[in-house]
Amino acid sequence: MTAVATLDRSLPALDASGIERFLFEPINPRSAAIFRVALAIILPYAFRSRGTIVFPPAAWVPHAMWWYHHVFLTRGYAAAIIVACTIFGLGIYPRVMGLILFAMLLPLGSLSRGRQSRQVWLLSLFAFSLVRSDAAWSVRRARRASRSACGFADEAARPEPRPPAHQLNAGPIWPIRLIQIQLCIVYATNAIAKATPHYLSGATLIAMSKMRSNFLIDMSDGYAHLGPIAMPAMIAAVGSVITESYLAVGFWFRKLRWITAAIGVAFHIMLQSVVQIFMLDITSMFLYSAFLLPWSVKSDAAPASSRSIARS
């Protein structure tokens, strides 16, 4: 009952205006800027491709190998990605740059490492490219501020001209909702895939610890040895399915968001001692920010321009 009440308060009511708010509520420009800069910093790291080989579906494309060996897997291409990320991070035409970056990174989603995480990054980048994330902390905003300061230096008392209403926010929130939904799908898909008798019995975990070279512990004796704790493989398997199921839904309860994020981080840190994961854990934790950042315009202090409007 309490959980339902919390969810009711977290999600807008499912009437027309509730759905409208869920999709078209304006985005806080500062949160959009933070997400944009963070994305620009992490993308070159997430798409590092040294030592990888081409995998399907790209490997099925005729002449794809030539393109990979002469273009996509070269240092020059990696440098071009860093340049594109820098431009994107600075907020110079972020929508166009986001889509260009998406096109540049797309071929790197079909390599031998990080296919899952790169799929998540690519879809998140595509969705975020639709956000007008240059409404704050961008070169455009900085230029406007400096022009405004120069133009009215002798008339300090003159209020800043009112920007168009749509520039006071970063556009509708639905691209962020898609990123939030994707994070939940990552956990839900894995929880569903693991909810099988074989997995829940612990047999799959034991077999993986024997067969997979990136498993750091051997569960041949039926136990997951995590430091001083020897946990039965079955408990570990059931625990991971319950945790992933919870993480798939927990973020939608506003009051539980930080607790859910803490549980998620603890879960991924614990996983690090069991298995070496390339990037999907970091990707998931990064996307917690899609829930934790204050996306609502009213949750942030009004920008300087709107404060002056309010005073006038």
Partner: peptide, 22 residues
């Protein structure tokens, strides 16, 4: 547009399964 992107996310979701089978 949102529904198209959502459909893509859902269609590609099975590729996100990891460490569930051996």
């Amino acid at each position: 547009l949102a529904l198209l992107i959502l459909a893509t996310i859902i269609a590609l979701a099975p590729r996100l399964r990891v460490y569930f089978s051996v």
